[in-house]
Design a protein around this nucleic acid. Sequence first.
DNA 1: TATTGTTATACTCTATAACTATA
DNA 2: TATAGTTATAGAGTATAACAATA
Lengths: 168, 168
Amino acid sequence: MATPRTKTPPPVRTGLRRPLPGPAEGEVRLGELNDFIGFHLRLAQDASFRAFARQTGHPELKPGRFAAMMVIRNTPDISQVALSRAIARDKSSVTPMIQELLRRGLVTRRPSPIDRRSMMLRLTPAGEALVGELLVHARRHDGTLDEIVGARKAEFITILRRLADRLG
Amino acid sequence: MATPRTKTPPPVRTGLRRPLPGPAEGEVRLGELNDFIGFHLRLAQDASFRAFARQTGHPELKPGRFAAMMVIRNTPDISQVALSRAIARDKSSVTPMIQELLRRGLVTRRPSPIDRRSMMLRLTPAGEALVGELLVHARRHDGTLDEIVGARKAEFITILRRLADRLG
DNA sequence: TATTGTTATACTCTATAACTATA
DNA sequence: TATAGTTATAGAGTATAACAATA
């Protein structure tokens, strides 16, 4: 307080968050939290997200973008609203996302000839290339998850899907 | 553009996000995304989070706060760093969270007699009361999740825990 | 009337880096 | 040297509401 603080330079944002240590053994007691599915869902999703961001060499492209590009790739000429439903986000959240992908030359937008309100999205060749590259990392990442999940992968995914479906 | 837009009033933030519709059947093709654990983890976590926020009558208290309060309740005199590890967040993320809980009279902070750098956190009676109340909703929420998950709940949680542990 | 997409607006969460005080 | 906690700073993610164009 007595000494004037030197001006803080803007922190460098790496976008690559380092892994955070989990709770140290015996350090804390979670109590009933231990029985809550929601709590563990959050921790697992968070860890998975971080691990993916770390492993892919593209810290600027987050899993959310990757998922959107995958959907566009698998459903060419999809509209923004349909995309927003597929990734469970509001359409107003999709707009800036698509704008970024457009700016980076990864997707194209063409007006639909059928419905002049809506736009048809497609990946550009650059977009296809990037998705292909990210897919390598995504597969490796999911391979890691597979090992952790074990033999019951299909059942595990079924349950996750059921959760997402029924809670919507 | 031609017509000047009337001044937009600041949007009302409810904090209670409405449920978003999932992908409509047959509308999109997710392709390989369907096999990725990470993708379904995200959708399930997101849906669970929203459902919890909707059901509890306290839109101002998010699951993150609830988890933190539970940890403090179960581990009285825990330090902020230990808490940050328990909830897998950086200590700098804990500071504003604790400040909010302090301001609202839900926790107390006392300097540790052993280590004068660290603070001991506890719930106030008001904090205990709030946690107790939220716990009712959390239990109901998790009961819903239980039904969806089915008989294999224990195994399901074990897998989630393993994911969080090994990906850290 | 309803829907697609955009814009204005703004909140929440979270992190990094530097800093102070202790250890 | 290392750790506990704070602060300055800032980016990512996402939402609500109103709007224009179209259905």
